[in-house]
Amino acid sequence: MKRKMLFAASVLAGAGLFAGAVLAERPLTVVSWGGAYQDAQKAVYFEPFKATGANMIDESWDGGVGVLRSKVQGGTDSGWDVVQVESEELQIGCEEGMYVELDWDKIGGKDAYLPAAVSDCGVGSIVYNFVLGYDKDKIKDAPAGWADFFDTAKYPGKRALRQGPKTNLEIALIADGVAPADVYKELATDAGVDRAFKKLDTIKKDLVWWKSGAQPPQFLASGEVVLTSVYNGRIDAANRTDKRNFGIQWNGSLFTLDSWVILKTTPNLDQAYAFLDFAGKAENQAKLPDAIAYGVTNKGATALIDPARLPDLPTAPENMANAVQISDSFWIENIDKLTERFNTWAAAN
């Protein structure tokens, strides 16, 4: 008898849970890049947003527009609402109709943000750079730019670049004397691409390839390489948390933005807008650089950031001076072709 009652109770409980799962509204699900960055976002955006009474959870992903396409394919809710995407994913997904076209009036208006952060489907969240990183304890004479990266006589030892063609062809051309502003004009021609690969040839045997953003600081720390391309935030994090003495050369650095998008299949559109509005406000954004050295996109935020912190950020005017924005339209059009070319180049001796 007792057993029977237990069984009946568990069946009821199970049915109740099931019904609850079906009926209850799913909390707003915000997806970002994980790691130290998402920890910072948690402290600055997610927890304070929840404190306003919002029902939200956060998840992480590793990027890839293919992932998002499979999420929205079929048109039914896939569990994600707001996703932080890289600029290429923003553009491809927007053209393919994977995201909600933003109503900018709901998130403070276009004028509140940096022009580069405004687009049809996404609102910029952070600005970050690929910079030239080195260890100040080992290199006294700071490299002046990418040309020094290719100078193995002046800086003997290995150097690291990100695996794949993206960012490396730009770096090679800048090192070869192309002005940062003209890099994509040059790359649009076959001769320009040849020139970039030829430049990479000169240090091919000294190159190590990194695949995840955490690797370059590790390579510098272990002495595996003397110079590396690296996300500026990683260098800052290594200096602050691991007490390293790494340096950054901002000259000729490549910058890009990550953006928030709302997936077309969201059942939580209003909360999604509420979150974007919250994460776009100057006073909220201004707290992010304290935790991690990325630039933020609300024009009003810069004035609220501790002036001592500004020189570490991509959005500081002197750091922006000779930087070039990574061209999404170039890479969307050419990534397959140049990835094939990069890999045949890597395999040839």
């Binding site: 890839g64 527009v65 293919g66 190159l207 390839w209």
Partner: peptide
């Protein structure tokens, strides 16, 4: 860079370049 096997390219074309 020259040690990637076929699965690497399958993953690249599935997620990154779609």
């Amino acid at each position: 860079a020259d040690d990637q096997m076929l699965a690497y390219f399958i993953a690249f074309f599935t997620t990154s370049s779609a």
